[in-house]
Design a protein around this nucleic acid. Structure first.
Length: 283
DNA sequence: CACCATGTTCCTTG
DNA sequence: CCAAGGAACATGGT
C-alpha cells in the first residue's frame, strides 16, 4: 500500500475511525514489527490509551494518543513497508493470516497486517529525524531540491528514492515523476539543469497530488485482500469493470508510450525496476 | 524452479 | 569519513 499518496489516503480514512477510541487490549503476533520497542513497553504504554489524532510524514503514519493512566501524550509510529495494511474491522471478521498487531477498540479491532513484515509499528520515532521535506509543503522548493541534487553523481531516479532528499516518493512515483518531467532516470543528479530541476520539482508534486485526488474519488476497501485496494493501480475494489489507467510508465514495459507511442522500457537501477520512455526522456 | 514485487537498513567495497 | 552497490529481511504471485 505504501507510497506517500496511499499513506495519505489511509490517514484520512483512519482518522475519523480512530479518534476518541480507547485501546482495551494490545495483541502482538509479530514482535519484530515493534522494533526497537519491547513487547512489554508497547503493551504497557498503549493499553488503555485513547487515540487523539493522526498525521502523515513521508510514508509514515504518526498516531497520537493519550495514556489513560498517566494522562501523558503518546506517539505511535507506523510504516507499511511493502505489503502492510491498516484497517478497522468488526470483531466478527476473521483476522488476516499475517496480522502483526491488533488493538481491541471495543466493538471493533484496529488491525495492522503485513504479509512480508517489512513494516513497523513502534514507539521509536527516530526514523522521522532522517526525513527530508514534505514534497507538497512550502518548504520543499526548487532551490532546496537543487541543493540536494547537486552533491551527487548518482542517477536521479535513485536519488528520488532517498527519503532524506524528499520524503514519500517511492519506486512507482519516481518513474512517473521523471516521465512527466521528460527526464531520463539515468541522468546523474548533479547534471540536471535548474530548468530540469524545476520541471521535476513540479512533476513530483503533480504526480503525488493527482494520486491523492484519484484515491479520494474511488471507494476503497482498506481491508481487502490480494492486490485490491491499491488505488494507484486505478482500480476500485468490487467494481472489476471500473478501470482507469493512472500509471503512465510504471509496470508498462513494452506498451506504447502515452505521449509518443514508442515502447516503454524497463531497466534496473540500485536493484529496483525503473520504467521510462527512451524517446521522451532524453539524457 | 526462476524471477519479480509499493521499502528500509546494514554490510562491504572503493 | 563518504559514496555507492548489494544483500538481507519474508512471503506470495506468475
Amino acid at each position: 500500500m505504501p507510497e506517500l499518496p496511499e499513506v495519505e489516503i489511509l490517514a484520512r480514512h483512519l482518522r475519523p475511525l480512530l479518534r476518541g477510541k480507547t485501546i482495551r487490549s494490545v495483541d502482538v503476533q509479530r514482535v519484530k514489527v515493534l522494533k526497537p520497542t519491547s513487547l512489554r513497553e508497547f503493551q504497557q504504554v498503549l493499553t488503555g490509551a485513547k487515540f487523539t489524532g493522526l498525521s502523515r510524514r513521508g510514508k509514515y503514519l504518526l498516531f497520537e494518543l493519550r495514556s489513560k493512566t498517566f494522562g501523558k501524550p503518546v506517539a505511535l509510529l507506523g510504516h507499511l513497508g511493502m505489503t502492510g495494511r491498516m484497517f478497522v474491522a468488526k470483531k466478527s471478521e476473521p483476522l488476516p493470516k499475517h496480522a502483526a498487531v491488533f488493538f481491541d477498540l471495543g466493538r471493533r479491532n484496529f488491525i495492522y497486517e503485513d504479509t512480508r513484515y517489512f513494516g513497523r509499528l513502534t514507539l521509536d520515532l527516530s526514523a522521522l529525524e532522517k526525513l527530508g521535506p514534505e514534497p507538497l509543503d512550502k518548504n520543499f522548493t526548487p532551490e532546496t531540491f537543487a541543493r540536494a541534487l547537486k552533491c551527487s553523481r548518482q542517477a536521479v531516479k535513485i536519488k528520488l528514492l532517498d527519503q532524506s532528499l524528499v520524503a514519500g516518493v517511492g519506486n512507482i512515483y519516481a518513474s512517473e515523476a521523471l516521465f512527466r518531467a521528460r527526464i531520463s532516470p539515468k541522468l546523474a543528479a548533479n547534471r540536471l539543469t535548474f530548468r530540469q530541476i524545476k520541471k521535476l520539482w513540479r512533476a513530483i508534486r503533480e504526480v503525488l497530488a493527482a494520486a491523492i485526488a484519484g484515491g479520494s474519488t474511488v471507494q476503497l476497501d482498506f481491508a481487502g485482500g490480494k492486490s485490491e485496494g491499491l488505488f494507484y493501480f486505478g482500480r476500485a475494489p468490487g467494481t472489476p469493470d471500473y478501470y482507469q489507467e493512472r500509471l503512465r510508465v510504471y509496470d508498462q514495459a513494452g506498451k506504447p508510450c502515452p505521449r509518443c507511442n514508442h515502447p516503454i522500457k524497463r531497466t534496473v537501477q540500485a536493484a529496483r525496476s525503473t520504467f521510462y520512455c527512451p524517446h521522451c526522456q532524453i539524457i
